[in-house]
Write a protein that binds this DNA or RNA. Structure first.
Lengths: 333, 333
DNA sequence: GCCTATGATGAAAGCGCTTTCATTTATAGC
DNA sequence: GCTATAAATGAAAGCGCTTTCATCATAGGC
């Protein structure tokens, strides 16, 4: 691989000039630039990005930390972010935190040791204090799906409460009154918020809240399975089920089929997230769309603006989820 | 951030010695090592990976190129590979080629310009010649799901023909004789091979091949939709459908429902790949498992062995797919 | 035509580390 | 106790680039 030195020699100019035509960091006379470009082409020269990083103290890499790589949930997010940065010649380094405090910490350290210019974090287990400490240490990062006091200017959020509200409200409007709820793990903020939204909708419609009709799930398919089994064992009639995510909704639907229930006539189900398999279920799942793509996009914009000083207009901090009506909900009277 | 120089000063040793304790690249006296380690801890020192890369001509990063980031298909693969490398302190840079020749090329160049130590490629559009040229240029890479002559020692493959064979054989054993086939785009090697497997199974069971019962799909959901519509328009009875991937199978199943068919009693469907949503369909999809995780694992091993000189025993070049029987196939008489 | 403001260019000092080579120190053999 | 050998350590030269600072050329203003 040719080096910048060889290019400068062939073009008959100094290193500095070559660097300038590469980076457009200072004006270079037309004729000179052409000579340099010709030399680069002739040698098949490509700048060594590692050397560039060392000299400029910029790695042009952005670290991304998500809970899981494996699931269907984050693929779109990553895809969107990768695209965004790729277009401007930067690349992403991806790590998975598995919702584990130790692992999330370790991953952040790993990403930092890789000299990432910025981090985009979707963390759940790590404490607010830790994040504030990170910010104080001068680490440039933006948070997705989390709101931390004093760090609000670097949080890109979904209005989970609104989402929970919309899900339950939809069922209420279809005439349902006995609505069971499967929450996520309650130590997760989004699980709490979605649950609050559910309660608010009930309250608004004057439906008394029945704590028996709530089950704390695990955001996994099995959570939905167990929830439905539990509710059925209760011997308490219910006509609808809202699940705090699509995985659990899918588990519930499968179980309902296994129990010989007819969907959606005997049970309406609403999910949350609108993951890619939501329309593979039968009946197709009515759910709350989580605009992950847009959130990823906005996180990328944040980095472009705050770290790479690109002229980005406004950063939107809170996104509103939307109800997506498919076939799993049914009007009763 | 402290530098190695400050550590060496605090510990009262030379840079070289500090470097040695960091990299364990030469023996250091116990007492010296402790002094250095204490100094590192005191300063909160972490080596600058960019400087390490520049000096050692190793970036400790591996480039991965897959067709899509967004779909469900590659998530597991990436997850597995990331894990593998993470454990040994290396990281992955991920890019998407979108099955487009230009884009695949460009992505490879991008990854190369990032000084990746090795590339793991899942490419479809780029030519064999291009890949041979890449190898000649000294680029270290391993290919997944592709077999290129003269590059066989760096190919990790799935026996697609066997997979296609198993899918159709399963239906034949259930008594089906009129079996329709939805292929992938025929310019893709794996699509051809799967199709060949289908034909071989028919032949083995003495079932005459009917070219009307073949439809070239696009590996997308809509391919399955169109295929089923086409076959129904044919006015030719068929009791089973094998789809060259799960997306198309899902499309076909949905369409079958829409047409009021009862599954699996009126139509058996087999997919291919066993992607994560395969058991969300209704009925749950019988399919051919593509051991993507293992293939990713093996690709990582290849890199560890051939690029990082780690003592890996044997690299397996060809993986065998397996039939996963669920509920979408039905025995007839 | 002379001076100054500006535009182009070059020289050279790093960026933080690895690695070779030379040197010093410890170990062992007699 | 002295040399031969091996084990530890240090000095210093890069790795390929960016960036400051100084220098030189050009062009206008009077």
């Amino acid at each position: 691989m040719a080096t910048i030195y060889e290019v400068s020699k062939l073009a008959g100019v100094s290193l500095a000039t070559v660097s300038r035509v590469i980076n457009k960091t200072a004006p270079v006379r037309e004729a000179t630039r052409e000579k340099v470009e010709a030399a680069m082409k002739e040698l098949g020269y490509r700048p060594n990005s590692v050397a560039q990083s060392l000299a400029s103290n910029r790695s042009n890499s952005i670290g991304i930390l998500v809970p899981e790589l494996g699931g269907p949930f984050y693929a779109e997010l990553l895809s969107r972010i990768e695209n965004e940065f790729r277009r401007v010649g930067k690349h992403v380094i991806i790590a998975a935190g598995h919702s584990d405090e130790e692992l999330e910490r370790e991953s952040i350290e790993f990403l930092r040791s890789r000299n990432c210019d910025a981090l985009i974090l979707h963390v759940e287990a790590v404490s607010d204090d830790y994040l504030r400490g990170l910010a104080d240490a001068g680490c440039a990062f933006v948070l997705m799906n989390r709101l931390v006091e004093q760090l609000a200017d670097r949080c890109i959020n979904l209005d989970n409460l609104l989402g929970g509200y919309l899900a339950t409200k939809h069922l209420l409007e279809l005439g349902h009154r006995a609505i069971a709820y499967v929450s996520g793990p309650m130590w997760k903020r989004d699980a709490q918020e979605r649950y609050q939204g559910h309660q608010r909708a009930l309250q608004e419609f004057g439906v008394p809240f029945d704590s028996n009709l709530v089950f704390e799930g695990d955001y996994q398919e099995t959570g939905g399975v167990k929830a439905l089994q539990y509710f059925r064992s209760l011997d308490k009639p219910f006509t609808a089920l809202v699940c705090a995510n699509d995985e659990m909704a899918s588990g519930a639907i499968t179980t309902a089929h296994d129990l010989g229930m007819d969907l959606p006539s005997q049970l309406s189900v609403v999910g949350f997230d609108n993951v890619n398999f939501a329309h593979y279920t039968y009946p197709k799942l009515t759910t709350i769309d989580y605009p992950l793509g847009e959130i990823g996009h906005m996180a990328a914009q944040w980095v472009l603006k705050n770290v790479y000083q690109q002229p980005i207009k406004d950063i939107r901090a809170v996104f509103a989820p939307q109800l997506v009506i498919r076939d799993s909900t049914y009007r009763i009277n």
